[in-house]
């Protein structure tokens, strides 16, 4: 079953008089449980595509079926609810709330959900433990390393148990060792928990952790290929 099906998706921005075409019509689909990397130089439209797929923005035209529902005409509140329940985000800049403990940061999506409050603590604790930060539960972001911050962000993305994780340059702000650790966690989510992963990166080495690479150029898909020799981050990490 396809979790994502997009058909001739377009996005134009009006900045002044001439429209800027960010996406010129892309068509593809992503299977449930697939790990896809989207690559492309800056300005190729990969961030715009991620925003559309992540329901953060609405397309100018085209159709988008997410998890079996046509969402291109959904109202903002319906999109907010879908983002909360079915999507997890990991951003390049971590985006943790300052002066707020790891546990509270991870709980953040739950306050916007209909998960009963009695379950919040247990869920958040489990998510933090799953990314290996059980000992950092009550620390604040300023006391964590970059890699640890990104792992907190992953825990936050997982806490609502979404079907899909969108990761926007998750290793972009990390040194290579922390980056590999983060990639191993993401790969593990895909393989063991069956989460669908859509990853944006401009580094080929990061993209090669995925099963399939979509290359964007000037708002259109330039290539869509299967990864022949997948990298396994956990192996590298052990080395």
């Amino acid at each position: 079953m396809n979790i994502i099906e997009v058909n001739d998706l377009k996005k134009e921005y009006y900045d002044g008089e001439e429209p800027t075409i960010a996406l010129a019509g892309v068509t593809f689909s992503v299977r449930q449980g697939e790990f896809v990397a989207i690559m492309g130089p800056s300005g190729s439209g990969k961030s715009t595509l991620l925003h559309l797929l992540g329901l953060l923005d609405q397309p100018t035209s085209g159709t988008y079926s997410f998890n079996g529902r046509e969402v291109s005409s959904f109202a903002p509140n319906e999109l907010a609810s879908l983002r909360n329940k079915e999507i997890g985000f990991v951003f390049q800049a971590f985006n943790l709330l300052p002066r707020t403990s790891v546990l509270e940061n991870v709980k953040l999506p739950l306050i916007y959900s209909d998960v009963p409050e009695s379950e919040w603590d247990a869920r958040a604790k489990k998510a933090v433990e799953d990314v290996g930060l059980g000992h950092r539960m009550h620390h604040e972001p300023s006391e964590l390393s970059g890699g640890e911050k990104q792992r907190v962000a992953i825990a936050r993305a997982l806490v609502t148990n979404p079907a899909i994780i969108f990761a926007d340059e998750p290793t972009g702000n990390l040194d290579s060792k922390s980056g590999k650790k983060v990639m191993s966690i993401i790969q593990d989510l895909n393989e063991r928990q069956g989460k669908t992963i859509v990853l944006i990166t401009h580094e080929t080495s990061t993209a090669e952790h995925s099963e399939r690479i979509l290359r964007l150029m000037d708002g259109v898909i330039e290539s869509d290929v299967k990864v022949e020799h997948r990298l396994t981050a956990s192996d590298e990490y052990v080395k």
Partner: peptide, 16 residues
């Protein structure tokens, strides 16, 4: 602004 964006990405509505 960034915090607002984050909260919205995580499911906050305009009303929240």
């Amino acid at each position: 602004t960034r915090e607002i964006g984050l909260r919205k990405a995580l499911g906050a509505t305009n009303r929240d």
